[in-house]
């Protein structure tokens, strides 16, 4: 055998093969760890870039983990779920209280809520309440105050061709409310 192997002995070749397998396994395990620990947004890109270098075992484990993450919904966060509606709730509740004690709830309640949120956002760095959500809250409060019958009156005035300022205001309010709702929900979904 040696007579035909002046350059590379079989043992050296076997050792090189074993070393290459060990190095590849170590690399695979390290890459699998990196993929597992990466943020979910980067995980798939890493998986695509390095997946082919993973051993069968590591590849299966990482694939399974990514698949599980993609099908498992995030845990329910009640605070985050109701956050978009908090200004509306606050304005509505304050309107009721102010109305009950005879104060001009229509304008005062949104103003107070706006002020409290602005101070809270500025001073205490509370979670961001977008202006769209405040507007939404304001319009809901308007509806609460004036009621559906008055909205119907405004619509009736338009149909009769004699629009009073209050009727036009109500229709404009309803339009703004519709737009606000669609924007607000669109915002919260993103």
């Amino acid at each position: 055998m040696n007579a035909l192997a002046p350059f590379v002995k079989r043992e050296a070749l076997d050792q090189a093969r074993a070393d290459a397998v060990d190095a590849e396994k170590a690399y695979s395990a390290r890459m699998a760890d990196i993929i597992r620990q990466a943020p979910a947004s980067k995980q798939f890109a890493l998986y695509l870039a390095h997946g082919t270098r993973l051993t069968e075992e590591d590849l299966q484990a990482v694939t399974l983990e990514i698949q599980l993450k993609s099908v498992t919904p995030p845990p329910l966060n009640i605070g985050r779920e109701i956050e978009p509606y908090l200004p509306m709730v606050h304005v509505a509740a304050l309107s009721v209280v102010l109305g009950a004690i005879g104060l001009p709830a229509l304008w005062l309640a949104p103003a107070i809520v706006w002020l409290v949120y602005a101070v809270g956002f500025g001073v205490f760095n509370l979670s961001v309440v977008s202006e769209l959500r405040l507007l939404f809250a304001l319009q809901v409060a308007l509806l609460f105050q004036r009621g559906i019958p008055e909205l119907a009156t405004g619509a009736n005035e338009i149909l009769r061709g004699s629009v009073t300022p209050s009727g036009a205001g109500l229709i404009a309010t309803a339009l703004v409310l519709g737009l606000t709702v669609s924007f607000t929900f669109g915002e919260s979904r993103r």
Binding site: D22, A23, A26
Partner: peptide, 28 residues
């Protein structure tokens, strides 16, 4: 890198081993 080192060494030694087998008739 460590893994490239092991892979390149294996490629090199396997090629050298193939060459020595191929050239064996001329070595004798």
């Amino acid at each position: 890198t460590k893994v490239e080192r092991a892979a390149e060494r294996l490629i090199f030694l396997e090629w050298l081993s193939d060459v020595q087998t191929a050239l064996a008739p001329l070595m004798m």
